[in-house]
């Protein structure tokens, strides 16, 4: 049987179609106007405080500078940075954190979140206590921990003396990486465990119950069922912590008050001291751009997932 609309002459169809499109466009135009009205305050500030500074940073990075005098030099700053060993040495600390602290923390956080699950009543208390350090600013964590490890105040000192290590100093340059490890693990492990736990409890109970019926033990369920389902959240956490590791500043900055650290101990410290101690703003801007690019590349995976998850259009 012929479809009914075949009986409509083609020109009428076109007219109808045409009308529909103009109507759609008009609607889209109106909603575009409305949307930008709501977006306006954000966009103005976003352009002023994010987009413009980034473009200014790019522009500055292409200039040479002596005092207040600036002149265009193209990519010369970048060429100099590539042979500036002090800049690349500053990545030792972030790489140490990336290689040791981040994996260790994710491992610990996963174990802790599995332990939370086994504690029905006391779990709340543990989660509260473990989360507390995260509410503390890195500066204060740096102050308190650096005092705890300082040779003049450390409660570890009497302990070391007792064990016969009275000559060994605690807060020395070589000891700073493990001390940073202790501080940063202290700050973020509880927070990370909380996030892992949140996605752990969203796994349907049926999964582990079915496995239990099949005779799987606690560890088998943990490794074969739960941890694979946590993959996405663990990857995201890894990326966020990798970004954090690239930018570490506050904790070594405060430790620097009690033990002499070179001004290129981390990339952020090197950028800061280049700009504000040595006044090499354009050179520092170029280093900032390189750091931003590295961060951006690391974050691409998260950006893609995030855009996919959140941006669904109205059906």
């Amino acid at each position: 049987m012929a479809r009914i609309n075949t009986k409509v002459p083609w020109f009428r169809k076109m007219a109808w179609f045409g009308k529909k499109t103009t109507w759609m466009n008009k609607k889209k135009l109106i909603s575009t106007l409305k949307a930008y009205a709501f977006l306006a305050p954000f966009l103005v500030l976003f352009v002023g405080m994010v987009i413009y500074p980034i473009s200014l940073g790019v522009r500055l990075s292409l200039y040479g500078q002596r005092g207040a005098r600036m002149w265009y030099i193209g990519v010369e700053n970048y060429q100099r940075i590539f042979s500036d060993t002090r800049f690349w040495e500053s990545f030792k600390t972030p790489l140490f954190l990336l290689g040791v602290q981040v994996p260790l923390m994710l491992f610990l956080a996963t174990l802790i979140s599995l332990a939370y699950e086994t504690r029905k009543n006391s779990g709340v208390v543990y989660r509260f206590i473990y989360y507390l350090p995260y509410t503390i600013p890195g500066i204060v964590a740096g102050i308190v921990w650096s005092y705890i490890f300082s040779d003049s105040m450390s409660p570890l000192r009497p302990l070391l003396d007792l064990l016969g290590y009275s000559g060994t100093k605690i807060l020395t340059r070589p000891n700073v990486p493990p001390i940073l490890l202790v501080i940063i693990l202290w700050e973020f492990t509880g927070y990370t465990a909380f996030i892992v736990y949140s996605s752990l409890i969203s796994i349907p109970k049926e999964f582990s119950e079915a496995a239990q019926l099949d005779g799987a033990g606690f560890w088998q369920i943990a490794f074969k069922i739960k941890i694979p389902l946590l993959r996405d959240v663990l990857i995201t956490l890894f990326i966020f912590n990798a970004i954090g590791a690239m930018q570490v500043f506050n904790e070594p900055y405060m430790l620097g008050g009690l033990v002499v650290l070179p001004n290129n101990y981390t990339p952020a410290m090197y950028i800061y001291s280049s700009a504000f101690s040595q006044g090499r703003f354009t050179y520092a801007a170029a280093m900032g751009m390189i750091l931003a690019c590295i961060t951006f590349v690391i974050s691409l995976y998260v950006l893609r997932t995030a855009a996919r998850n959140v941006l669904r259009s109205r059906s």
Binding site: I51, P53, I54, Q247, Y272, F281, A285, L291, F296, A307
Partner: peptide
């Protein structure tokens, strides 16, 4: 949305310097 998200990832250490200038 992608531009906004992308800029969320730019470290403060890179923008604070131009903001200072």
């Amino acid at each position: 949305f992608i531009v906004i998200l992308g800029c969320a990832m730019v470290p403060g250490y890179a923008t604070t310097l131009p903001i200072f200038i």
